[in-house]
Design a protein around this nucleic acid. Structure first.
Lengths: 152, 152
DNA sequence: ACAGTCCGTGGACGCCATCGACCTGAGGCT
DNA sequence: AGCCTCAGGTCGATGGCGTCCACGGACTGT
């Protein structure tokens, strides 16, 4: 993981569809060299996935909610995680410090679907209570930030 | 935006580096037809970007925080947004219903950098108070969910 | 000095992206 | 009905790209 690797990650975070030839031009190496570096970044887990980002409203996911979960004193955290994982609406799941053990970001099509999701969450073993905040609008999301070497 | 477009978006949300040839095989069209459809999805804004997703720890962004912002009664929301936009650590910004007008997701390298960011936020005009939650771990993030036509 | 290893380059070859020409079906107009 | 037009597809050609391979230079440890 040197400066060139970091630059490659930065470029691909900005545009995952850049060709190896273009990446090679940007970092001053040959295409095969870049190909090998990116392959290693993928198999070592530094690069986890390449995803297209879609306008949520356009694909029927116009309702965004952030849901804090308070855990039962006797709850099994792993079981809860497994239950959350089986709910496809939950796009992100953070394990938090504080009273609320989890913070979930969910996207659904309608408020009715959100209501149904919250009821399912409240019924999930280990969940003591939920607190839901609705996002009126998403100003931006997953904006990539400039990267620098930890040493710098 | 028909069923084939939706399928293309779904495929690209799963893997943004799929070739047009591969997409064409998956949806049963020719590569040029897929090329044109994807181009239209991009220029109409349905597909906003293609991003590589990297392991945050590996790129020096090991600290994740979710920050709620309470707005001053006299605050200018647009000015605040502009100020947040200039802080690269803020990866996502939601305008929320509730007491806290904004919810921000920030990623930094160290707790010291987080402290510095929170101080900058508290100094920002329009910000009455902040409430920061630290993510101890990110279980998953931006998991794409299966899509279906709104009518269905 | 030597061999081994790592990491790069250059060349070759087949697949892919992309352009242009043509085809087909649906809808509206005369 | 017959025709025009347009949207959206297929097909074929071509140039660039991805990817494999053999080779070479710099560092390291012995």
């Amino acid at each position: 993981m040197d400066a060139i690797d970091l630059r490659l990650v930065e470029l691909l975070r900005g545009n995952a569809r850049l060709s190896y030839a273009e990446l090679a031009r940007q970092v001053g190496l040959s295409a095969p060299a870049v190909h090998e570096r990116v392959g290693k970044l993928e198999s070592s887990g530094v690069i986890r996935a390449y995803r297209a980002e879609a306008e949520p409203e356009a694909i029927g996911l116009g309702v965004t909610a952030l849901i804090g979960i308070v855990e039962d004193s006797g709850g099994d955290t792993d079981d809860m995680l497994e239950a959350f994982r089986r709910m496809p609406e939950i796009e992100s799941c953070y394990f938090m410090a504080g009273v609320e053990s989890f913070l979930l970001k969910a996207r659904v099509g309608t408020i009715a679907q959100l209501e149904e999701l919250i009821m399912r969450l409240n019924r999930t073993p280990g969940v003591a209570s939920t607190r839901t905040g609705i996002a009126l609008s998403t100003k931006w999301e997953n904006r990539p930030q400039p990267l620098e070497l930890p040493s710098a």
